[in-house]
Structure formats: C-alpha cells, structure tokens
C-alpha cells in the first residue's frame, strides 16, 4: 500500500510541475482565500468570546447620591435583595472609600495623581448581578428611580449595566465578519474554479496516460486519485502559505499592541493559532478536492 501512495503522489507532483503557471495561479488564489478566512476566523472567534464574556459578566451598579440618608440606603438594599432574579450573594456595597481604593488599585503607580485631587469625587454604590444575564435589564429597572439614587444623566444611566455594550460589539463585529465571509465565499469559488482549471489542463495533458490506464484495467479510483491528490496539494500549499502569511503579519503588525491590551488575565482570547492552521489546511484540502472532483466529473470519463 505504501508504494501505491508513493506512486500516486509522485504522479500528482510530476503533473503539477508539468503545468507550473496554472498551478501557481491556483495556489495563490487559495492562499488569498485562506488568508482572508484566517483573519475572519480569528476575528470572529475573538468577538464571540468577547461578547460572551461581556454578557456573562454584567454587573449592575446603582450609584448613590452623596446626600443619601442611611434609611434611604437601607431601603435600596432591601429592594435589591427582594427583587426576584438577583443573585443573592452578588450584592455588594461599595462605599466612597472603597471606590477610591479600587481606582487606586487599577491605576497602580499612577495613583499618586489621585492625591492631587481634592476630596473624593466617587459616589458610593451597590453592585449586584442578575442570575440570568439576559434578565439584567429587567432586574435593573426594578431598582431605578428609588430615592437616594443619583438621577440618571445623558450618557450616565443609573443603574448602569453597560446596556448594549455587548450588542454594539457584536453588531460591528458581525458586519465585519459578514463582509469577510462574503469575500471568502467569492474567492473560494474562484479558487475551486482555478484548481478545476489546473486539473482540466492536467487531464488534457495526460489523456493518453488515462487511455492506457483504462486499457490495462485501472480502477476508476486509480485513474482519479492522482488528479484528486494534485488538487489537494494545490489547496494545502495555499493554506500553508496563508498560515505563514498570517503568522508573519500578526507578529509584525499586531503582536505588540495586542499583548499590551490583553496583559490582564481573563481577557478574551482569539482561536489558538495551531487550531487555526489545522482548520485552514482542512479547508484547503476541501477546496482542492472539490475543484478536482467537479472537473473530473465533466472531463474524465472513467
């Protein structure tokens, strides 16, 4: 069996060398398709993870007036705990001091700046989560407008749960992904056709050989396999090229920025690169097999 595979692959390679120009055209097209698909997949997976994270992690913040009385505060706390759908153990009171401490922590070494400001501008707040992230808005509404809460202002809703933040991200990313997908589909069709053309030429160049093969009793698969492998080699070569190109462009263009933006733990991850490469190669194989398969149906009567 091993020798037979060697035979088939050698046949395919011989034939690819035979029509070099069309092979290059097909490989380059696959490369472009796979490059775009690679960006699409990476971006898509990042956005998906990001929006999931945002959605699962919505904290509702109800900011209090500085002038709120203890009674008002107790009343607000009671309302929150009694609202159905609130995670009971998620409720947390953040005093003005807690708020400034937290900000200091976040700012790290820049926190000296805070000492320059006079007083503490941050409000105290209640933080809590809904049991079901999708119920966040309903839960937040139950608390809205209670006496002692800061009245909402334009751009600063109260209670604030980052309404629509996940949706906005998803929507933008969805548009980008859709555009990439559209380009990918068009290019994938082009790639299939170009691989088909390569195979057509190679069928034509080897028609005599095919005739002899049939004459001496080659099975249909024996006749087809070298062409099939030829198409798949085109596809895989393009995919590998695209993977290399993706890796290089990531390293040179994006790596620094992405690393500094995502240094914190728990930031959403895009798809792992090795997995992406495997996906691209599989897609390349598929495109190659499809291109050669369609052409053989038309031009190779076996």
């Amino acid at each position: 069996m091993e020798t037979r595979w060697k035979f088939f692959v050698l046949e395919a390679l011989k034939s690819l060398r035979g029509n070099f120009a069309t092979t290059v055209a097909a490989v380059v097209t696959v490369l472009v398709v796979m490059f775009i698909a690679g960006i699409g997949i990476a971006l898509g997976s990042y956005v998906y993870n990001y929006s999931n994270k945002v959605r699962d992690d919505v904290t509702i913040r109800a900011y209090l007036k500085d002038s709120a009385t203890d009674k008002q505060i107790a009343e607000i706390q009671r309302t929150i705990t009694e609202t159905p759908g609130v995670q009971p153990d998620s409720l947390q009171f953040i005093s003005k001091d807690d708020a400034i401490l937290r900000l200091q922590e976040q700012l790290g070494k820049d926190s000296e700046l805070l000492q320059l400001t006079l007083g503490n501008p941050l409000p105290a707040s209640f933080e809590f989560k809904a049991v079901d992230p999708d119920q966040t808005a309903t839960v937040a509404k139950a608390v809205a407008g209670l006496p002692g809460l800061d009245p909402p202002r334009a751009g600063l809703p109260n209670p604030d749960y980052g309404a629509g933040k996940a949706d906005r991200v998803l929507k933008t990313a969805g548009t980008i992904t859709l555009v990439l997908l559209g380009m990918g589909v068009v290019l994938a069709i082009a790639a299939v056709l170009l691989i088909g053309n390569t195979i057509r030429l190679s069928i034509f160049a080897r028609r005599r050989e095919v005739e002899v093969q049939k004459l001496v009793g080659a099975t249909n698969w024996f006749v087809r396999l070298p062409f099939m492998i030829e198409g798949m080699i085109c596809g895989v070569a393009g995919a590998i090229g695209a993977a290399v190109l993706l890796a290089v462009s990531y390293q040179t263009l994006l790596a620094d920025r992405v690393e500094s933006a995502m240094s914190g733990s728990g930031s959403p991850n895009a798809i792992a690169f090795p997995l992406l490469v495997v996906l691209l190669i599989l897609a390349g194989l598929g495109i190659g097999a499809l291109g050669s398969g369609l052409t053989m149906r038309r031009f190779l009567q076996v």
Partner: peptide, 30 residues
C-alpha cells in the same frame, strides 16, 4: 480489461516512460 490484452496499430505506449516502466505500468495499475 485485466483479462484482455490489447495491442493497437499506434502501440499506445507512454512516451515519457521507458520500456520497463511501460510494461510495469500494467501491473502497477492493478
């Protein structure tokens, strides 16, 4: 077809293969 040998006026040999390879081809195919 493996049980029928065929000989033609135009030989139908593969021009890029040697005599050995041409004959071996019939066996490789099987």
């Amino acid at each position: 077809r493996r049980n029928i040998g065929c000989v033609f006026q135009d030989f139908k040999l593969l021009p890029t293969r040697t005599v050995y390879e041409n004959v071996a081809y019939a066996l490789e195919v099987q």
